[in-house]
Design a binder for these strands. Structure first.
Length: 420
RNA sequence: GUGGCUGUAGCUCAACGGUAGAGUACCUGGCUGUGGACCAGGGUGUUGCGGGUUCGAUCCCCGUCAGCCACCCCA
């Protein structure tokens, strides 16, 4: 039989990387709690329509990147490619808009996009997704960036850039879109094939093109910034003022746009040069019309998502292990008889105890304990049993002492000694 | 979806078309009851998979799968 392997772009995550994930989660949860967020787990599988309606049917995600299939009942289902759509659905389904003025929610879990894998990009990847419903005030947008700043600092992420912009509301965006199309039409022969396609479908995205000539052309283009309506302009100004109040450093990038249709006003992206081509590891923005478009009452929203895999590549902070680890080396059947009582005693004390199942030579067990990075090793053989003691060896100092061979008191005694 | 590079031991990588190797890791012993260093021994392998060419393929050819990098796009 052929060896079974994970699907392309799917991975088993363990060891150091999983440790980074857990650390990111712990640090983020702490900061989220300080700002009154509560966690919500939502399904991975939803009706396809949910994503088509929220993300937009002409976006790349919906057009070619979703894991979609038909279930036995004939419904089209999709593995979520992002979390916001599901969060909005859950918000409406729970009727949170009548229960509370403001809902601050977050969720952590896998997302799925059928893309070609490369550095920092997988078909199954993990996001920590944060959403706020019910707040118009740009203070909340600034607050989110402030929180991100705090999380990144605590994780030891240093070289990153926060870029912000406003994509306006549907009103000013439509005006601008016409101006932009007019401009690029006059230069269409200078634009690459992709950009000519974008010109018809989503002209804002021409700003994202990496071709030298397209960059030159878009450099001379009009900017949405200059076409923002009064409301959007004020929102942006207040947002930037609050950013300053929080003392967070951001860069205004007037050409920053987003790939999902639902964004309005504030958009932002946190990038790092250490990530290669996919340099954005946190991105988000405001979506003031999405809840209404999804069939709810008019409710402003704003949020962001952290790409866990990408942030894990940047996080320098290490998870710290404060509990000492113990190993039980036993010689012979009589000594092995103490294994289960000791395991029970250590479990009661909430301490981990490692051991071998085959009780090989002491040398071998010591080597094993060393590989496990054990701080202390208990050594028990016939000599000790006859004397009614057990030897406790400190692996770092090599100092050894004797403890009374009484399983119920050993964990406490050992902890006392290792505290020194 | 497109393009380039790459698939050999747990890991990093060798091997002119001629019996698959090294370093490291791991196991055992030296030390019959004490880890790391040292010494000796041990290869743990469907050379990703499937075909083809050949007396003979890890090597050449085709296909396929996977990984990496870039594009598209995105966290």
């Amino acid at each position: 039989m052929e060896k079974m392997k994970t699907l392309r772009g799917f991975r088993d995550i363990s060891g150091e990387e999983l440790g980074k994930f857990r650390l990111i989660e712990a640090v983020s949860r702490k900061h989220l709690r300080l700002l009154g967020f509560s966690e919500m787990d939502i399904p991975i599988l939803e009706k396809t329509e949910l994503f088509v309606r929220s993300i937009g049917d002409t976006t790349d995600i919906v057009e070619k990147e979703m894991f979609t299939f038909t279930d036995m009942g004939g419904d089209s289902l999709t593995m979520r490619p992002e979390a916001t759509a599901g969060m909005v659905r859950a918000y409406l389904q729970a009727g949170l808009y009548v229960k509370e003025r403001v809902s601050k929610l977050f969720t952590i879990g896998p997302m799925f996009r059928h893309e070609k894998p490369q550095k920092g990009r997988f078909r199954e990847f993990h996001q920590l997704d944060v959403e706020v419903f019910g707040v118009d005030d740009p203070l909340i947008d600034a607050e989110l960036l402030w929180m991100i700043h705090g999380v990144l600092t605590e994780l030891g992420v240093e070289n990153y850039t926060m870029e912000v912009n406003s994509v306006g509301c549907p009103a000013c965006r439509d005006t601008f879109r016409r101006v932009l199309v007019d401009y690029f039409r006059t230069k269409s022969d200078l634009l690459c094939e992709d950009c000519n396609r974008r010109l018809e479908r989503n002209p804002l995205r021409i700003f994202d093109c990496k071709h030298g000539q397209c960059i030159d052309v878009s450099r001379g283009s009009p900017l949405l910034f200059d076409y923002l309506c009064g409301d959007c302009k004020v929102h942006l100004d207040v947002f930037l003022r609050h950013i300053t109040d929080f003392g967070v450093l951001v860069t205004m990038n007037k050409r920053l746009v987003r790939g999902l249709d639902y964004y309005t006003k504030t958009v932002f992206e946190v990038t790092s040069d250490e990530l290669g081509a996919q340099k954005a590891f946190i991105a988000g923005g405001r979506y003031d019309n999405l809840v209404e478009e999804m069939g709810g009452p008019k409710t402003p929203g704003t949020g962001f998502a952290i790409g866990m895999e990408r942030l894990a590549l940047l996080a320098r902070a290490e998870p710290t292990n404060i509990v000492p680890t113990y190993f039980f080396a036993y010689l012979g059947e009589r000594a092995r008889g103490y294994l289960v009582p000791l395991l029970k005693a250590f479990a009661d004390a909430g301490l981990p105890l490692a051991y071998t199942y085959d009780g090989r030579s002491l040398k071998s067990q010591m080597r094993y304990a060393d590989n496990l990075n054990a701080d202390f090793v208990f050594i028990l053989g016939d000599d000790e049993i006859d004397k009614g003691i057990v030897v406790l060896r400190d692996m770092k100092t090599k100092a050894q002492c004797e403890l009374l061979l009484e399983p119920s008191t050993i964990p406490r005694e050992a902890l006392k000694l290792s505290g020194e």
